[in-house]
Write a protein that binds this DNA or RNA. Sequence first.
DNA 1: GTAGGTGCAAACAATTTGCACAGTA
DNA 2: TACTGTGCAAATTGTTTGCACCTAC
Lengths: 140, 140
Amino acid sequence: VTPFESRALLSRHRLRPTAGRLGILDLLASSGSPLSAAEVHEGLGDGRPDLATVYRNLERFAAASIVRPVRFEDGARRYEIAGGDHHHHLVCTTCGEIEDLASCRIEPFAEAALHRHGFQVASHSLEFYGTCRKCSISPH
Amino acid sequence: VTPFESRALLSRHRLRPTAGRLGILDLLASSGSPLSAAEVHEGLGDGRPDLATVYRNLERFAAASIVRPVRFEDGARRYEIAGGDHHHHLVCTTCGEIEDLASCRIEPFAEAALHRHGFQVASHSLEFYGTCRKCSISPH
DNA sequence: GTAGGTGCAAACAATTTGCACAGTA
DNA sequence: TACTGTGCAAATTGTTTGCACCTAC
C-alpha cells in the first residue's frame, strides 16, 4: 500500500486523509504482522497521533473494512491491512513473531457445523502457536 | 465431573479442595460452554468466592491443566473443563450461545506450517462465528 | 464556515496484586 | 503450627469518552 493508495483508500470511505491516518496505514502496510494500538503508537515515533486517536482510527478503519482485527491468546487486539488474501497466523510463543500462513481450507469444518448443528458460519478465526524456525534453531 | 471427581482432581494437583474451588469446578462442569471469571462469580450466587479468588483459582486450574482458557473475539477470557476431547466452538453472534464442534482435522494445516515455514505447531485455536439454528429460525 | 479530526484528561472495564485474616493439613 | 487460601481494597492495563481546539474540504 503506497501513500497514494492509502489516500485513495481513505477518501473512498469518506475519511479525511490526515497525516496521522496515512502514517497508521503506512505502518500497518509495511509491518509484516498485525499490530496493536500501542504498537502503532510506538511505531510512529515522536508521539503524534495521540494514542486515543490511534484507537479511534483503527476502529474506524475496521468498520470500513480497511483493516481487519485479530485477537491472539494474549488478549490484545491487533489489526492488519485487510486487502490481501484470507490467511491465518503462526504465533511464536518464544520470540513473539507472527507469520502469515497462506492457505485456508476451512470449508469442511463449516459444512460440519451446518449439517450437525444447523449453524451458519459467517467468519472464523484460526491461529497457531508454537516455535518458529529461528527459535527452534537457536533457542532463546 | 461429580463433586467426588472434583475433589480428586484438586488433591491430585496439591490444591486444597475448598468449597469455593469445588463450586467453581462444578459450575464449569455443568455449564455447556466456557465461562468468564465474571460469569463464574455471578453463577455462584450469594457472593462467596470473591471475584479476585475466582480469577486466582481459574488461573491455578489452567496452570494445572484442569481447565483450558479460550479467548473469543469479544476479548474476554473464558475457561472450560479440560477433560474432554479436543474440540472447537460455534459462537452465535446473535444470541451469544456457544456450542462445541467435535471434530478437528487440523493436521494438514500444521504440516503446511512446518514444511513452508519451519514452524513447529504446539497448539491452535479455531473458533467459528455465525448464526445458530435457533436464531436463524426465529431471528431475534 | 462547518463538519470532521485530534489532544488531553478523565472515565471505564477487566485483571492483578498486597496484605492481614481465616481455614486446613 | 505452618502454610495455603480468601476477602477487601488499591494498583495496573487496555480501551473508551467528553470536551475544547484545530484543520481539511
